[in-house]
Amino acid sequence: MASLLALENFKVRYGAVEAVRGINLDIRKGEVVALLGANGAGKSSTMNGIAGLEPVAEGRVLFDGQDITDLPPEEIPVSGLTLSPEGRRVFSTLTVEDNLRMGAYGVRDGAVIDAARKRVFSLFPILAKRQGQYAGTLSGGQQQMLAIGRALMCNPRLLLLDEPSLGLAPLIVEQVFGLIATLRDQGVTIFLVEQNVAGALTIADRAYLMSSGQITRHVTADEMRTSGSMVESYLGSQ
């Protein structure tokens, strides 16, 4: 299958600190791929670099064969890739409805926006009930649903999820992972950063393990099936 996202010798720097030190990976259409590792391993920097929130210091980001390395962040969602960022970062002073509207900012066709909103509301019925409410008044779990819903409003072909389960109650975490599976079944390719390794491994087709800014291990689909617990213990030992 064709590669949807490829990183080649991808580096992200903060001043003199190299957070991501030249990684290579690729994600194929229809896959759910997890990026796992300890805090400070460079997972979020990788996500932010791909989405354009942080400049890519070196290397290339190829999305569907197109080089998007130096695109400003506002042009990346138009190309079909979007990020639900770490910490949710919904617009707390905007209503739920307006947050979703902003998610579809680059979409011109009103009918497409309506269809996207319907899809988000069918995935998250609670958001439909809270449409007029300010996002800042939602619970953490609802804000996470809104962050994912907002990202889905531009009908991305590739969805980057940065720590979607962070800080959520166990029951809500289960819902979020269930949702990721649903999205995959709907044909959305997902690249996921998670600290909840066990949860991520239940839904991921493949995983990359990251440590000190480098990919230290690639767990293939076959290995996932046979030795998921090995990955857990590998990460646990770090």
């Binding site: 929130l53 506002e74 680059g106």
Partner: peptide, 8 residues
């Protein structure tokens, strides 16, 4: 930053 991520 997030506004730009939306395409603004």
């Amino acid at each position: 930053a997030i506004a730009r991520l939306m395409g603004i």
